[in-house]
Design a binder for these strands. Structure first.
Lengths: 110, 110
DNA sequence: ATTTTCCATTGATATATTTCAATACATCAA
DNA sequence: TTGATGTATTGAAATATATCAATGGAAAAT
């Protein structure tokens, strides 16, 4: 995964409102669905368009999934993607700089 | 940890240039230190003030540490902090919304 | 058909961020 | 002391982001 993609996902996560949203969303697509968007807005105490905006950013970063039921839209966390983000970030921090520099050199000289 | 603090750390991480920097920094304070700031700038192909700016953001987010040696400044990753960030984020995503809502209620009614 | 409900989008404003040249500051060398 | 080296800061410009009122559009209820 290129750093730019991972950065976009981390940036999507790096907002207090969006962290609050993630804390309210269910981890799985549940039948007795949790909050619809309006209820989410009520719970957060912020206007609905603002919530939709943040949901869009999280969705475009592939961090949440969505399903429309009747008139409502229900979102839930894309757990596998969350795991990948954490793993990818830790891989960068755990990677030996000298070794990866060597790898980059091997790749670019192919 | 409040969401705003975690968000600031995640936001600091969520930038492609800063991810590249983290990929180049050693994971520990090493004697045969890796790059000083100028060498880092050379390696990244961007001006030194830009690198200093990004290092400052990472430093203020407590994600890296710094030591001045002679004229040079050497930075390295604050690994424990990185682990805490990942754990905190995963805790938010893994938390059961209904349960935490109940906890919030118990706390606020104390 | 009309109204209500729910969500997404648009548009506008305020704020924040990224980038880098220029400069300041400190340390070392000659 | 003068010049060179390494880093941080300042200031300016371009871009990006967060926020929300107003609006559009779709689905359900009356």
């Amino acid at each position: 995964m290129p750093h730019s993609d991972l950065a976009r996902q981390l940036k999507a996560i790096g907002d207090p409102t969006r962290l609050r949203i993630l804390g309210l969303l269910p981890r799985v697509k549940t039948c007795q669905a949790g909050y619809n968007v309006s209820q989410l807005a009520g719970e957060l105490g912020i206007p609905q368009p603002t919530v939709s905006h943040h949901l869009k950013i999280l969705f475009q970063a592939d961090l949440i999934r969505c399903e429309k039921m009747c008139r409502d839209a229900y979102y839930w966390i894309n757990e596998p993607a969350v795991e990948v983000v954490c793993d990818s970030f830790q891989a960068i921090c755990r990677c030996d700089p000298a070794q990866s520099a060597a790898e980059d050199h091997r790749q670019s000289s192919k």
